[in-house]
């Protein structure tokens, strides 16, 4: 017994090192698996508050650019409104706003945005108080940004499309083939779309949109355009490089999408599994 205690005392630094190292590895491994990194998160009161304080200062420097984008979006919306007012409601999805589903949009500001790491997150200044919940989609005026992963009272953390854990259903605008969107960690403006079957007819510059197969994003939200594509090793699927509409290094303001049918759809899906 004496020897064990002596051993512990002699090696206490090494044991402390080992313990803390294991703890940090645990956090790291958690952060690499989707939906588990709850503990180490910048959505807490202190870091969120500090980021908010910084945002309130740096906000002024981007006002001109933000104004320009808002005016552009307004113009687009007004054009669409004029279409609808003639009561010739088109069924074609012209772009991000003409959905046939009841979705609610909640505006927010980006407090922190990474794009240089392998797993990037975005912190926005809306949280549970504003009825933001995990698994809600986040977009800008131009296209998609990511999915809400973790929320606190006032802030929420968005798992960016520039994250190796991110998988988002996306498809071609002109046909119904779809695949999943991921990121290889290299260029923050280019993401990869995989498992598009080889039957699809592709052309450089084709538009990639969300395909509305989940309740996260409505159908028809822009993602980007095809930069180039090739068949994979088995010659059965295309690997496509997609140039994003969004400049991921400068996001500005975002909208979180609340799907009003999500609960109903989830209930239905769960009941199918249970039977």
């Amino acid at each position: 017994m004496q020897q064990i205690i002596n051993f512990l005392i002699r090696n206490k630094n090494f044991l402390l090192f080992l313990f803390l190292l294991l703890l940090s590895l645990l956090f790291t491994i958690q952060s690499h698996s989707y939906h588990k990194s709850k503990f180490i998160s910048s959505t807490n009161f202190l870091t969120g508050g500090i980021y908010g304080w910084r945002y309130s200062i740096s906000d002024y420097f981007g006002l001109k650019e933000k104004n320009r984008r808002l005016i552009e979006e307004n113009e687009k919306l007004r054009n669409q409104l004029s279409l609808f007012s003639k009561e010739t409601t088109p069924v074609i999805y012209i772009d991000t706003i003409s959905f046939n589903r009841p979705f609610t949009f909640i505006k927010g500001n980006v407090y922190r945005n990474d794009y240089s790491k392998a797993d990037n997150y975005i912190l926005i200044n809306k949280g549970e108080k504003d009825s933001i919940k995990p698994d809600m989609g986040v977009i800008t005026d131009k296209g998609i940004i990511g999915i809400v992963e973790n929320t606190s009272k006032n802030y929420s953390r968005v798992i960016s499309i520039l994250n190796s854990n991110s998988r988002i259903n996306a498809g071609l605008k002109k046909s119904n083939q779809y695949g999943s969107l991921m990121w290889n960690g290299k260029d923050p403006n280019i993401v990869q779309l995989e498992t598009i079957p080889r039957q699809a007819v592709l052309k450089k510059g084709d538009t990639i949109i969300t395909n509305g197969r989940s309740t996260i994003f409505p159908k028809g939200i822009g993602i980007g355009t095809i930069l180039n594509y090739e068949l994979d090793k088995n010659q059965s699927y295309y690997l496509i490089d997609v140039k994003l509409f969004n400049d991921m290094t400068d996001i500005g303001f975002v909208y979180a999408i609340k799907s009003n049918e999500a609960i109903e759809v989830k209930k239905l899906e769960n009941s199918k599994i249970n039977e």
Binding site: L20, L21, L23, S24, L25, L26, F27, T28, I29, Q30, S31, H32, S37, I40, S41, S42, N44, T47, D114, K117, D119, Y121, L123, R157
Partner: peptide
Amino acid sequence: IFGDSGGIHAA
């Protein structure tokens, strides 16, 4: 915590 990077800097 500030960078949402799990525990990589700590390690």
